[in-house]
Every structure is written in structure tokens, then in C-alpha cells.
């Protein structure tokens, strides 16, 4: 059952793409989450409302629905804009659509994570920053940001684990990731179970490695905290 008949390499190639999609969308979601959290905590009512609508709608609709909407709908939008502006035909690649969608979805979850973490930073520390004459952005980057990391990490780690598993969905829009390649190889040699099990095992490798890395980071960022 475990003879891969030379197709193991194809799955490994897909593994590389899966990791690339995951890391890239993690970067996008972290950026969006940061912006969203600052917007939710800002004094501007417009910013708060936009961030609120964003997190509510994204977290209320399945990721696959959003992915198909952005993949097919986005292509149409680009075509319409292209016709209007007189561009040549632009093809939205499944890689871009998939990465953007996953980044966009998890940006909403990251917003909640970072919002909670910023609120957990003692008010006095931020006031002390202001008292030293730091500007708003200076206080944010020098005081709030480093201090919130510890509070954000556990939930950030959870989001990452869910995000890594969500990347499997990009196979539905035709991206040749690990799941897609495992399927293709499995059908060719008539061993779909074996190859999907291999893909599942490689996902467990991602999960287990991240678990260790997260535990280590958590320890580093909590080094100044006393524990009973």
C-alpha cells in the first residue's frame, strides 16, 4: 500500500507550494489584522464601522464561498475594468486569488486577536510613552507593539494552524498544491487513499513543527513574566 511508484516527488512539490501560500497569506492577514485592530480601537466612527462590518461578514461566511467569489468575481471585475481602461486581457491566477482570499479571511480573525492583545497592554505603559514626549506612532511601535506580542501569541498561533489547513481549499480553484497533486498522483496509480494519507501526514508535519516553534517563541516573549 505504501509504494508511491515515483509520485512522491510530485506531492513534495505541492508541499512547497502549500507552505508558500500559507506563509504569504499569513503575512497578508497579519498586516490586515494590524490595520483592522487599530481601526477598531480608533476614535473615528467610520473606521470602527468598516472594521466591524469586515470582521462580522468574513467570520459569518464559509471560506470556500469567499474564495470562489473572489476567484470568479474578481476575474469579472478585472475584465470589466480592463475593458473600460482598454487594457489587454488580465488573467487572475489561482495563486493570487487563493493567497489574497486566505489572507483576507484570516485578517478578520487576526483583527480580533490583535485588538484583544492591544487592550491587554497596561494603560500606564502607553501613558509613560506619551510622557516621554513620543508621538502616537512612536509609542505604538516602541511600546505597544512589543508589549502586545506576548498576549497575541496563543491566539495568533491558533489562527496560523487553522490558516495552514485552510490552504487545502486552493486545490478547488485549480492551484497545484499538495492536495491537488496528491489527488492527481493517487488517481494515476489508483491509490487515492495512500496519497491523501501522505498529504494528511505532511499537514501533521506542519502542525507539529509550528507547535514547537510557537511554544519556543511564547517562552521567549514571556521571559519577563513571573509564574507561580
Amino acid at each position: 500500500m505504501f509504494d508511491l511508484q515515483g509520485y512522491g516527488e510530485l506531492v513534495l512539490k505541492g508541499f512547497g507550494l502549500t507552505v508558500a501560500v500559507a506563509l504569504l497569506s499569513l503575512a497578508i492577514s497579519t498586516l490586515l489584522g494590524m490595520i483592522g485592530a487599530v481601526a477598531k480601537l480608533s476614535k473615528s466612527r467610520v473606521a470602527r464601522t468598516i472594521a466591524g462590518v469586515y470582521t462580522t461578514i468574513i467570520r459569518g461566511v464559509p471560506d470556500l464561498v469567499l474564495m470562489l467569489l473572489i476567484f470568479f468575481g474578481g476575474q469579472m471585475l478585472v475584465n470589466d475594468i480592463g475593458d473600460w481602461m482598454g487594457w489587454e486581457y488580465i488573467d487572475i491566477s489561482p495563486f493570487i486569488a487563493g493567497t489574497l482570499t486566505i489572507g483576507f479571511i484570516f485578517g478578520a480573525y487576526m483583527t480580533e486577536t490583535f485588538r484583544g492583545a492591544i487592550l491587554a497592554v497596561p494603560r500606564g505603559e502607553i501613558e509613560a510613552g506619551h510622557a516621554y514626549g513620543m508621538t502616537g506612532p512612536q509609542t505604538f511601535f516602541r511600546i505597544t507593539l512589543p508589549a502586545m506580542v506576548r498576549h497575541a501569541l496563543p491566539s495568533f498561533g491558533n489562527n496560523w494552524l487553522v490558516l495552514a489547513k485552510t490552504t487545502a481549499l486552493v486545490s478547488v480553484i485549480g492551484l497545484h498544491d499538495m492536495v491537488y497533486n496528491a489527488g492527481a498522483a493517487g488517481f494515476t496509480v489508483k491509490k487515492p487513499f495512500t496519497f491523501y494519507l501522505l498529504a494528511a501526514g505532511l499537514f501533521l508535519v506542519i502542525t507539529a513543527t509550528s507547535d514547537i516553534a510557537l511554544r519556543w517563541t511564547n517562552k521567549r516573549y514571556s521571559s519577563g513574566v513571573r509564574k507561580a
Binding site: 485552510t166 493517487g186 488517481f187 487515492p192 491523501y196 494519507l197 498529504a199
Partner: peptide, 18 residues
Amino acid sequence: GTPLLVQLFMIYHGLGQF
């Protein structure tokens, strides 16, 4: 630790292997 999509594929496409 594994995606639901892979689990579904293992059952729907995979079980026929045996």
C-alpha cells in the same frame, strides 16, 4: 491537525482503493 477537505477525499475517493 489535517484539513477537513483531505479527510473527505480520503473517505470519498480513497476508500474504494481497498
